[in-house]
């Protein structure tokens, strides 16, 4: 299982980003995960719980935003969602497409911190 390796990567990258911004305590790490990333969310959440204990971010929770698979459909000339990872066809006109524009995401999007930590909030949670 490679989810532990992914969890360790998340903790490393998040700690690096926190340090760069002089953030002391990270409450949660927010990530985007697409079905084509090859990562199983439930396994990642368990792995993250194990991995964080001995990391620089022992308090951090992992918040996962599931992303849809989106393809570019030549027939519709538009980005369209697909219904199943097993069938990459446009959900509107059923045309197959291998032009994947969304669904491979494996990205840290935000660090959640206590509001008091930095005086100038960029985004309110």
């Amino acid at each position: 299982m490679h989810e532990l390796s992914i969890a360790l990567n998340i903790l490393d990258v998040a700690a690096e980003e926190a340090e760069r911004r002089s953030i002391g305590c990270v409450e949660a790490v927010h990530i985007k995960l697409g079905p084509l990333s090859g990562i199983v969310k439930s396994a990642l959440l368990s792995a993250f719980d194990l991995a964080r204990e001995h990391s620089a971010l022992p308090e951090a929770r992992l918040v996962v935003e599931d992303m849809p698979i989106v393809i570019y459909c030549k027939h519709c000339q538009a980005e369209q969602p697909v219904e199943s990872i097993q069938e990459l066809v446009c959900s509107v006109c059923r045309t197959p497409s291998n032009h994947v524009v969304g669904g491979r995401e494996m990205e840290i999007t935000a660090l959640e911190i206590t509001a008091l930590e930095i005086a100038d909030p960029e985004i309110n949670a």
Partner: peptide, 17 residues
């Protein structure tokens, strides 16, 4: 719980790889 907020970070998890 203390109120929290989000600091935007856009980094690939497997950036190094």
């Amino acid at each position: 719980n203390a109120p929290t907020r989000l600091v935007e970070v856009r980094t690939k998890i497997l950036k190094q790889n």
